[in-house]
């Protein structure tokens, strides 16, 4: 029993960690591009803006379980296998990048345009605006968004079992639900709650520290709403993405 739980735990952490890393790598540039290519913005380009917008919406409208199965050939191409945690990571990344990109977009849009203008009036170019103004100013919101994304990924990863990805969610379904081992299911639920709590607290703490420094008030609205849907039942997990859309 112990090694079963330990392996599931490690699988979950593996999937969530790597998909989060790639969500940041992919989501920040995409979110920035969504803002910067918009009408009247620094890199105004209606075509690019529309294309990215469509891709992001597409990625967000597919239920994750479908995405997971649909991406099997693609996973094989990328990581050389269509089963296991590595294959699940591919689908998690494809699901998380558009999700995080929208949160990045919102965070960057919140930055006062006057600050961009001030940087431009000093002779700053696009590079300066992005790296000295937009990203540093949006940092608290970006971290709040990342917290949301990590927790949503934890929910998504419960479905990784569909491609043999393992993880806590899978354990809860196969052993707890299908084999009626309620005790084991409860343990996994407690573990998942612990992980979510740690992630959320860490995120909140970082946001609060940054905000206190810059004199802004409490954490962005909606951060806490993601508590409830993050409980790892597949249906609840797909819905976890829904309230986040409004953040």
């Amino acid at each position: 029993m112990q090694p079963l739980l330990r392996d599931a735990c490690l699988d979950t952490l593996f999937m969530v960690w790597w998909s989060s890393v790639w969500a940041v790598v992919g989501g920040i540039p995409l979110g920035l591009l969504l803002v910067l290519t918009d009408r009247g913005a620094l890199l105004q380009n209606v075509v690019v803006n529309k294309v990215i917008g469509v891709i992001v919406n597409l990625g967000r409208s597919l239920p994750f379980i479908i995405l997971l199965v649909w991406l099997i050939p693609f996973s094989r191409m990328i990581v050389g296998t269509s089963i296991g945690p590595s294959a699940a990571v591919v689908a998690l990344v494809i699901g998380a990048v558009p999700f995080f990109a929208r949160l990045v977009e919102t965070a960057v849009r919140e930055v006062d345009h006057g600050l961009t203008e001030a940087a431009q009036s000093m002779g700053g170019g696009t590079f300066t605006v992005i790296f000295k103004v937009l990203l540093p100013q949006a940092l608290p919101s970006l971290i709040a968004g990342l917290t949301t994304t990590v927790i949503a990924l934890l929910g998504y990863s419960a479905m990784a079992g569909a491609v043999g990805g393992g993880g806590l969610g899978n354990l809860a379904i196969t052993y707890g639900y299908m084999r009626h081992e309620t005790g084991l299911m409860n343990v996994t639920i407690v573990l998942l709650i612990a992980i979510v709590t740690v992630v959320q607290l860490a995120g909140d703490l970082a946001v609060r520290r940054l905000n206190r420094r810059s004199g802004r008030q409490s954490a962005p609205v909606g951060l806490r709403r993601l508590w409830a849907p993050a409980v790892p039942k597949p249906r609840a997990a797909t819905e976890a993405a829904e309230p986040a859309k409004t953040t």
Partner: peptide, 10 residues
């Protein structure tokens, strides 16, 4: 500027 436009993060 009227609203100063200082970076709150710096």
């Amino acid at each position: 500027f009227q609203h100063f436009n200082l970076l709150s993060s710096r």
